[in-house]
Each structure stands twice: as C-alpha cells, then as structure tokens.
C-alpha cells in the first residue's frame, strides 16, 4: 500500500513527535510494508475490512464495578515530585492562551 511522506508527517504531527526528513523517508517505507503485509493477510484469509467488528480480548463476562467509596491516595507529594516542572503544587507548562487548543 502506497503511503505518502505527507501521511507520515501527519501521523507524526498527531503523535506529537518531531521527525527529520530522513526519518520520514525511512518510516514511510516501514509503514508501507507493515500495512501491505496486513492487507495481504486479510486477502489470503478472505477477510473483509470491517470497521464495525466488535471483539473484546478479555473473556470476563460480567462487568466488575467499583463501589463509590473514597479511597484516598495519601502520597500526592510523591506524584508531584516526579514532575519535571512544578510551582507551588501546580504542574507548569508553556503558556496556552484561553481558546487555543
């Protein structure tokens, strides 16, 4: 299956990963191969593409739900300590203006 450099760039844009042109080229070939291999499998097994196919890997039959009782995590400081940039208990990120997303 033919994949364009633009497809790879778009995927990289969505996945938020910087790629240089060389990487785009090399990943493009891998993506083409991997996609084509899969399409070949479907063809040789006589399976149609099916967007709606609904299958769950887990064989659990019953949904196990959690009761609405608080289970407070005490060591929130440990969570915050892992952050690369924190100010007064808030995680900091580069400025985002309201309305931009």
């Amino acid at each position: 299956m033919k994949i364009e450099n633009e497809d790879v760039r778009k995927a990289a844009e969505i996945a938020k990963i910087y790629l240089n042109n060389e990487e785009v080229e090399s990943y493009k070939i891998d993506l083409e191969d991997m996609t084509q291999e899969f399409l070949d499998v479907l063809q040789s097994l006589g399976i149609d593409l099916d967007e709606k196919f609904d299958f769950t890997q887990s064989s659990s039959k019953r949904t196990v739900l959690r009761n609405d009782n608080p289970d407070v995590f005490e060591e929130t400081d440990k969570i915050i300590k892992n952050a690369p940039s924190v100010k007064e208990g808030l995680f900091t990120v580069p400025t985002i203006l309201k309305g931009e997303n």
Binding site: I3, A12, Y27, T35, V41, K52, F53, D54, F55
Partner: peptide
C-alpha cells in the same frame, strides 16, 4: 507509535477493527 497513529486515523480505522477479526 507512528504506525499505530497512522492505523487509527479515521481513513484507516477499519484496519484496527479488522485485526480483531483475524484474532
């Protein structure tokens, strides 16, 4: 990640669902 992102894009969405068909 790139491959997976590409596969889940709207225009390719049938690929992921179909992989479960083979599974």
């Amino acid at each position: 990640i790139l491959f997976g992102t590409y596969i889940l894009m709207a225009k390719n969405s049938a690929l992921y669902a179909s992989s479960f068909k083979v599974a």
